[in-house]
């Protein structure tokens, strides 16, 4: 039975090496790969889901502090990164398309552009992080917000004269709750950035092997599955951007 299957595949040309011996045919092999990748992605959904849950919970408890923390994030940089990442998803999809149609030059090109956009994203993220550390927005003992809206603990530290001044109409915010926002910000964007770094590694791997001509229209599973991973990371950012950057825009 198995031999006859092998024989039929052999007859169809150079794809024999692509079929692993434990699969009946290419269709089954591809299906198994896609399914396995999705099972992995579901564990990823649950992983990020836990953090999204923490975010939702504390945002509903401390809406003012979360809006205040969000206002410190740069919508310009976050927006540019959103555009960069969605662009990289397009080029990744184009890379898969090139693999399917057997265009090696385009495959390498699109993979390279995807990698470049991914690195651009990480570069911009690094600029944002640097800014956050410089402004003491990283939660911890050195945490502080700008002069304009003082948090409760900072007001308390100042000599009595200053404490009476702050704008009466603005609610006094609890510094620890604002720090909670930044904790979630750093945890979520940090884990997301880590996924981007792993994705960039996978892309470099793909570029190396596609230059060697390993991928054909019969066998391009690594390109397809890395694509799934890359798009997943894009989806996480699609949620992170409005939830972290845009929630305190009005007022």
């Amino acid at each position: 039975m198995a031999e006859s299957h092998a024989a039929t595949v052999e007859g169809s040309g150079p794809s024999t090496t692509a079929l692993a011996h434990h699969f009946e045919d290419m269709e089954q092999q591809r299906e198994a790969g896609t399914l396995g990748m999705w099972v992995f992605l579901i564990t990823e959904i649950m992983f990020f889901g836990g953090m999204f849950l923490a975010y939702t919970l504390y945002r509903s408890k401390y809406p003012d502090e979360f809006a205040r923390g969000s206002r410190e994030l740069s919508i310009l940089l976050g927006g540019i990164n959103t555009v960069v990442l969605i662009g990289s998803s397009l080029t990744m999809a184009m890379a898969v398309h090139s693999a399917q149609t057997g265009n090696r030059k385009k495959l390498i090109g699109f993979l390279a552009v995807t990698l470049l956009l991914g690195l651009t994203f990480l570069g911009i993220k690094a600029v944002e992080y640097t800014e956050k550390f410089e402004h003491h927005h990283f939660p911890g003992v050195n945490f502080k917000l700008g002069e304009h809206s003082e948090t409760a603990s900072q007001v308390a530290q100042k000599p009595d004269g200053a404490a009476a001044q702050p704008q009466a109409q603005k609610p006094v915010l609890d510094s620890k709750r604002v720090q909670l926002f930044f904790w979630i910000y750093f945890a979520m964007t940090g884990m997301h950035a880590l996924h981007m770094i792993i994705g960039a590694g996978a892309l470099s791997f793909l570029i190396y092997y596609s230059r060697k001509g390993r991928y054909t229209p019969e066998y391009y599973a690594p390109v397809e599955l890395t694509g799934l991973y890359w798009h997943f990371v894009d989806i996480v950012w699609i949620f992170l951007f409005p939830l972290l950057y845009l929630l305190g825009l009005h007022e």
Binding site: A93, G227, L228, H231
Partner: peptide, 9 residues
């Protein structure tokens, strides 16, 4: 996310 899942993925 749906668009990405349905078409890109």
């Amino acid at each position: 996310a749906l668009l990405v899942v349905l078409y890109f993925m």
